[in-house]
Design a binder for these strands. Structure first.
Lengths: 226, 226
DNA sequence: CGGAGCTTTGACACGACTCAACGTGGGTGG
DNA sequence: CCACCCACGTTGAGTCGTGTCAAAGCTCCG
């Protein structure tokens, strides 16, 4: 379990992510292999890991308390960076959810790009604080679905025009640790969203937004569920 | 009330903070007057405000939902910056808690300093997410007391050596909005911390840490209260 | 002395958690 | 191929922590 390692601030050696480096590659970013689900990219407290960009798949960043309580800080989809935040040691752990490909960001980022990436991460973290501190369980789940649709969505092949479908990488447990809830509460909220006709879920990991407007209203607290 | 203005993303004009600019000042940062309590420094959604450094006093940064729910993102003490986070509009509001003096940061920060400040803000925001998502009410209040002691504390004049005393700028309501609780719950937790002999509170705004070690243990969830 | 604002305390309600049982889907080995 | 297992998800019943509502206390200040 990662929990055993997570609190170990004194461990000085970084784990070696299995990233491919082509020796003659002149590109700024080098593609890695397709990592399986639940692969640890880096671990809180270990010596600082390099910067990666998610190319496909999904990465969760999280912190854990000494007693095992876990808080997912962010779910990171294609195009975004992981490993931001300077310092000698990683501020959080990161692991893949589902098959994921990363690019190693070899050269240091331009100051502007770095600032922009940090700013976006900061804005997302503050939005998460708002969600965790002041939103109800259904509002949290609706907000999460909208966020994931934004990151992973593509127009649905069939059905209503404008409908968005996405692959749900995080498990109910991952969502619970992201939203400050329990697995059961997340599951119950999904059921309610389904029964209200706002979303459709197939095989537990394929989500379709049926009424994005009403879903946004639920996320904002302007629309109660059943 | 600020709540009326807070959601107004379309308002293009920034309020003019009453900051003193000495015309012949060659310094990089210019001192302002002593601002009274509850002075708005900038407001979420308005055109981007400049960068300020808190010199004395305390500033709260916060976001509000359309229905008035408020989440304090950070309480900022002397030495730290407010107004970080690029973009056309302010990502959050900021107001003074108690008499506060700011310095206007006139020249753009060096890239390194900016990155360091952003990184620290990000780390604090992520710690807040951990607190909001996974800690109980007593743990949250104990964590808050320790954080404020760190930012505002000085060695207590009398009594036990090593004891730290600090002026509590935020009201119970501010603390509640920071910690994702209600005023009543914050008050009850303070009472419990006092009865357990971990802290002492005089005049509702002067806090002394009597047993920092046990307080830290409560904050981490290793020590229950009464 | 009186009022306003903040804090504290108590009684009660409710939303989310806990515990437990059951269902489901995907892998594995006989 | 089917039986079995295991991890994950769902659902239900009951508990508990925190929120809500109400009232009283405290402090400052006119």
């Amino acid at each position: 379990m990662l929990h055993v390692l997570a609190g170990a601030g004194e461990v000085p050696i970084a784990p070696q992510p299995m990233l491919y480096r082509s020796p003659d590659c002149a590109h700024r970013e080098m593609a890695g292999p397709l990592l399986p689900s639940r692969t640890a990219i880096f671990i809180e407290g270990f010596a600082r890991a390099p910067l990666y960009r998610v190319v496909e798949g999904c990465v969760a960043t999280f912190q854990t308390l000494a007693d095992g309580r876990r808080q997912v800080i962010d779910l990171v989809g294609p195009g975004r960076l992981i490993g931001l935040g300077a310092g000698a040691r990683n501020r959080h752990s990161a692991e893949t959810l589902g098959f994921t490909r990363l690019h190693l960001v070899a050269e240091p980022l331009a100051a502007n790009d770095l600032e922009a990436a940090l700013t976006e991460t900061l804005a997302r973290s503050q939005a998460l604080a708002m969600l965790l501190g002041r939103k109800t369980a259904p509002e949290r789940v609706a907000s999460a679905v909208l966020d994931l649709a934004d990151q992973f969505g593509r127009p649905a092949r069939q059905g209503k025009r404008g409908a968005v479908t996405f692959h749900l990488y995080p498990s109910r447990g991952d969502l619970a640790d992201w939203l400050g809830l329990t697995v059961e509460t997340v599951s119950r909220c999904f059921t309610r969203l389904k029964k209200a006709g706002l979303i459709d879920v197939k095989h537990n990991d394929l989500v379709t937004l049926l009424e994005p407007g009403n879903l946004a209203r639920v996320a904002a607290g302007n629309h109660a569920l059943s």
